[in-house]
Design a protein around this nucleic acid. Structure first.
Lengths: 138, 138
DNA sequence: TTATAAATGCAAGTAAGTTGCATAAACTAT
DNA sequence: ATAGTTTATGCAACTTACTTGCATTTATAA
């Protein structure tokens, strides 16, 4: 994706265009897998930890990224669909975590199956995390 | 559940019977919702943080508890089914997190629907976390 | 180009998770 | 019941992730 495209994404989310934001977004688009703040710190030592932290938060708030639930205790983030907005997130895809390489992927084309909950419960969002072995490691 | 029943659960998992373990197990059985280490620290100030941490870990290792994935970054734990063993966990039920009261419940009678992954991927475990409003808060 | 608003870096703090070690308690086999 | 062995506990200390305040720098809009 061109630098101009990246800038327009930031603009469309009312975010100022800065080097850090462009680099982080570029990294997410290239990696395709979910990333943690630690991953960004390793990749971009020229930026302060706090700047990366706030970059992730601004991307979360504006709907560019979503947080992926996991049991490890380290927050990981993935790119949102274009259909997401700050108010409405649309993440009915499946997250796959490889138990071998540790990578977390968004399986965008796999839709979360319909789920039923007990009477009186209201569903606002559904997250599905599949653990196993990815195609690269199999 | 009687104190004797609690003790037999510990024994069947090759765990020594201690006050802390009995209290923690009793708390889980009563609460029914998922709990974090912090919840235990608040409830049992007479036990050290580390003791509670190790109690949770021994319960995890022996298959009494399972870890529930979530986006908050704080690990939460829920009781396993009786069909779980240290080697084999059987958690095809749904976890429900209420966005109002924050409680995480195991919906034991709701089975996770079948899911398909791309070719070459192997599934080892499936976790489903539903966010919404629980019956109490609706 | 200047004024304004926001992002950055640094320092510092909070909280969760973890390990080592001495002491205390639980279990096993007399 | 008791002595010996194994395991659990409490304390101190450490690592890592996350978070906030503030002064400075940078991006944007008038």
């Amino acid at each position: 994706m061109s630098q101009e495209n990246l800038k327009s994404i930031l603009k469309s989310h009312q975010l100022r265009i800065t080097d850090c934001r462009l680099d982080v977004m570029h990294f997410f688009l290239n990696e395709k897998s979910a990333l943690s703040q630690g991953d960004l710190e390793n990749q971009f030592q020229k930026y302060d930890r706090v700047t990366l932290y706030r970059t992730l938060n601004s991307f979360l708030d504006s709907g560019i990224l979503h947080k992926i639930p996991n049991a490890s205790g380290v927050a990981t983030y993935g790119l949102c669909h274009e259909t997401c907005s700050p108010d409405h997130h649309d993440h009915n895809h499946i997250h796959f975590k490889c138990n071998n390489c540790g990578q977390i992927e968004c399986l965008d084309d796999k839709v979360v199956p319909h789920v039923s909950v007990p009477k009186g419960y209201e569903i606002e969002a559904v997250n599905m995390i599949v653990d196993g072995i990815c195609a690269k490691c199999a």
